[in-house]
C-alpha cells in the first residue's frame, strides 16, 4: 500500500497539517462563503434585471437570455436569486449574533450566580429545547404576524438556548479557578469578573458554535419563508422562491435554483464549521486507530 503518501497519512504524522485552514473541505467552504458575500455586495452589478422587474413572458425555460428562466410573474430567476443573497446572508449573520449574545448572557448569569437563578433560566432553556426548532419558530412567527422581521425574531427565540447551555457549562468550570477567585478577592464586581476575567475563555467555543449555527439559521429562516411566515411577496427571498416553485412544480427551474443557493450557502458554513469542530475537539481529533 502506498497509503503513506496520501494527504490523510501525512496529516496524521504532522499535526500542523491538521490546521483547519489546510483542509480541502474548509477551503471549499470558505471560498463559497467569500463568493456569496461578494455576490450579495455586488448584486446590482451582477444581476441582469432588478429583482422585481416583470419584463419578460411568464415561466420561460432557461435560455441564453434568461439563464435560470423566468418565474410565474415574468421575473428573471437569476436576478432574483442574486438579490436573494442580500436577504438571507445578512439576516443569518445578524440572528446568529443576537442568539449568541443573548444565550451567552443568560448562560453566564446562570452559571455565575447558580442557585434558583440558574434553575429558572435553565428550565426556560429546557422548555425551548422541548420543541423541534421549526415548530416553535412557526408558532412564534404566526403569533407575531407573518413578516420577515418576526421570522428572524422567531429563529432567535429558538436558537439562544444552545449558547446558554454552552456558556453556563464553561462558566461553571471556570468559576472556582484560582484566577477568578483571586479577582473576586481583589474586590472586582460580578459584572467585571464576567466581562474581564471569564469572557476571553468563553469567546472561542461560542464563536465555533456560531459558525456551525449560521447554516441552521439559513435553513430555519428560509423554511419559515417557504411556509409563508417570513419574507412576503414580492420580496426575492430564497425560501419564498422555492414555495413559488412548489406552486409551479412542473416548471422545475422556478424552485430548483433558489434551493441550490440555500444548499450551497448552508453547505459552505457546515464545511467550515465541521472542520473547526474536528480540529478543536480533542476526542475526534485524536481518537486512536487500532
Amino acid at each position: 500500500m502506498t497509503a503513506s503518501d496520501s494527504p490523510a497519512a501525512r496529516s496524521r504524522r504532522d499535526p500542523a497539517a491538521r490546521s483547519p485552514w489546510r483542509q480541502p473541505l474548509a477551503l471549499v467552504g470558505a471560498a463559497f462563503i467569500v463568493l456569496w458575500v461578494l455576490v450579495a455586495l455586488l448584486a446590482p452589478l451582477l444581476a441582469p434585471q432588478g429583482p422585481l422587474d416583470q419584463l419578460s413572458p411568464k415561466l420561460l425555460e432557461p435560455s441564453a437570455q434568461h439563464l435560470f428562466g423566468t418565474d410565474e410573474l415574468g421575473r428573471d430567476v437569476l436576478s432574483r436569486v442574486i438579490y436573494g443573497s442580500q436577504v438571507s446572508l445578512p439576516l443569518a449573520f445578524l440572528l446568529v449574533a443576537f442568539a449568541a449574545v443573548i444565550g451567552s448572557v443568560v448562560g453566564g448569569i446562570a452559571g455565575f450566580f447558580g442557585g434558583w437563578v440558574d434553575g429558572a433560566l435553565m428550565r426556560l432553556a429546557d422548555l425551548v429545547f422541548a420543541f423541534p426548532g421549526i415548530i416553535l419558530a412557526m408558532a412564534v412567527a404566526a403569533a407575531l404576524g407573518p413578516q420577515l422581521r418576526n421570522a428572524v425574531l422567531a429563529v432567535v427565540v429558538v436558537s439562544w438556548p444552545s449558547y446558554a447551555r454552552l456558556v453556563r457549562g464553561l462558566v461553571l468550570s471556570a468559576r472556582n479557578s484560582e484566577y477568578v477567585v483571586a479577582s473576586r478577592l481583589l474586590g472586582s464586581s460580578a459584572v467585571r469578573t464576567m466581562l474581564v476575567d471569564l469572557r476571553p475563555n468563553i469567546a472561542g467555543p461560542v464563536l465555533v458554535m456560531a459558525a456551525l449555527d449560521v447554516g441552521n439559521a439559513v435553513l430555519l429562516l428560509s423554511g419559515l419563508s417557504f411556509l409563508g411566515l417570513g419574507a412576503q411577496p414580492p420580496a426575492a427571498e430564497w425560501g419564498a422562491m422555492v414555495a413559488a416553485g412548489a406552486a409551479n412544480f412542473d416548471r422545475w427551474w422556478v424552485g430548483l435554483f433558489p434551493g441550490l443557493c440555500i444548499l450551497t450557502v448552508v453547505l459552505a458554513f457546515n464545511f467550515v464549521g465541521d472542520t473547526l469542530r474536528d480540529a478543536l475537539d480533542p476526542r475526534t481529533a485524536r481518537a486512536i486507530r487500532g
Partner: peptide, 22 residues
C-alpha cells in the same frame, strides 16, 4: 461519506421534496 453526510444536513428539506417529487 463526510461530504455526503454534510450534504444531507445542508439540504433544505422542502427543496429536496420538490426536486424528488419532480
Amino acid at each position: 461519506l463526510r461530504v455526503v453526510s454534510l450534504g444531507g444536513v445542508s439540504m433544505p428539506t422542502f427543496w429536496v421534496a420538490l426536486v424528488a417529487f419532480y
